[in-house]
Simulated scan of single mutants.
Amino acid sequence: MQLTPRLVLMLSTPPLMWACNAVVGRLAIDSIGPLWLNALRWVVAFALLLPLGWAALGTARARAQIRERWQVLAILGLIGVGAYNALQYMALRTSTPLNVTLIASSSPVWTLLIGALPYGAVPTRQQLAGAVLSLCGVALVLARGEPAALADVRLVQGDLLMLLAIIGWSFYSWMLARPPASMRGAARPAWNWAEFLVAQCVFGVAWAVGAVGLGELVVPTGPIQWSWQLAAAILFVAVGPSIIAYRLWGLAVGEAGPAMAAIFYNLTPLFAAILSAAVIGESPQAFHAVAFGLIVGGIFVSSRTRAQPPRPR
């Protein structure tokens, strides 16, 4: 596989958007509960997507196509829309940014493991080496240039929530790359990207809104503290990390494969470190450049060859 400038842009833009989502989300959860933030994010995103993807719902035949595939769409909606960011926002309430980002950066490991077990895609030595190299770069960022700081990591409830989120995201990536028979080839409806995301959001928004109701029963949150900043934050996370990032991620996973996409996902904490430094007024330091080199090196090593998953039958 050759990494063209177009493919690199598609693979690196979602991590940038998701880094912005982490920074904006951390600021927003002081004014709104994490489940509310996730639900409103996807309600707004769904409303913005409807004009682009209305064909997926606008006719009786289109709705029948969704009903026939409701199981896989419900799982995609649960993992990609309803759960991942809800778990991430919840994790930021009970865990530290260091732990949450460290666990999220393990995405390549989980993606390779899940690919090897349920999907039979045996990772190559280059992929494993690239994943390790990239993780070293992420660890350097998280330790702020002092690897001994990683020894102070302690798992708490939020860490386990983020671990569940990233494992689910790895399954989501493989489901996009290796869909079941009803979503593959001629059997797949002729959905464009917006229609496919609308089909997922039909179920994902229901999951997200339902989680708010259940969450309020179990652990009630205070009233939402509305402001223009919060409204702007919700609009941003609904457009950038949701619509734009999900569109590019779907294209990138389909073209580069989930294992390669997972390596690029490791750019997220690097972008987050730079954005966080900008927000609090700190300039990037030398270890940021070293970490970037390690992450890019991991991407290059992994791109030289990739796992050979079984061909669809």
Rank of each mutant, 00 (worst) to 15 (best):
L3A: 03
L9G: 08
P14W: 03
P15R: 08
N21G: 05
N21M: 02
V24G: 11
G33E: 04
L37Q: 07
N38Y: 13
W42C: 05
F46T: 12
L49H: 04
L50G: 11
P51G: 00
A55V: 07
L57D: 00
L57S: 00
T59A: 00
A60M: 06
A62C: 06
Q65N: 02
I66H: 03
R69P: 02
R69W: 06
L73R: 03
A74I: 01
A74F: 01
A74N: 04
I75V: 02
G80E: 01
Y84I: 03
N85D: 02
L87I: 08
Y89F: 11
L92R: 03
R93Y: 13
P97Y: 01
P97I: 01
V100P: 10
P108L: 11
P108C: 02
I114R: 09
I114C: 04
L117A: 02
Y119N: 03
P123L: 03
Q126C: 10
G137A: 05
V141R: 03
V141Q: 10
G145V: 12
A149F: 09
G158K: 05
L164P: 07
I167G: 05
I167T: 04
S170D: 10
S170A: 11
S173M: 15
A177Y: 15
P180G: 11
P180Q: 09
A181R: 15
S182L: 13
S182A: 13
R184Y: 14
A187T: 00
W193D: 15
V198H: 15
A199V: 12
V202C: 14
V205P: 04
A208T: 11
V209T: 02
G210K: 02
L214F: 03
G215D: 10
L217Q: 04
V219E: 13
G222W: 14
W226N: 09
W226G: 04
W228M: 14
A232D: 13
A232F: 01
I234Y: 11
I234G: 10
F236N: 08
F236C: 06
V237W: 01
A245W: 12
G254Y: 10
G254E: 12
A256T: 05
M260D: 09
A261I: 08
N266E: 09
L267D: 11
T268Q: 05
A272Y: 05
L275V: 01
E282I: 07
P284C: 11
A291K: 13
V296R: 01
F300Q: 04
S303E: 10
S303D: 12
T305C: 14
P309V: 15
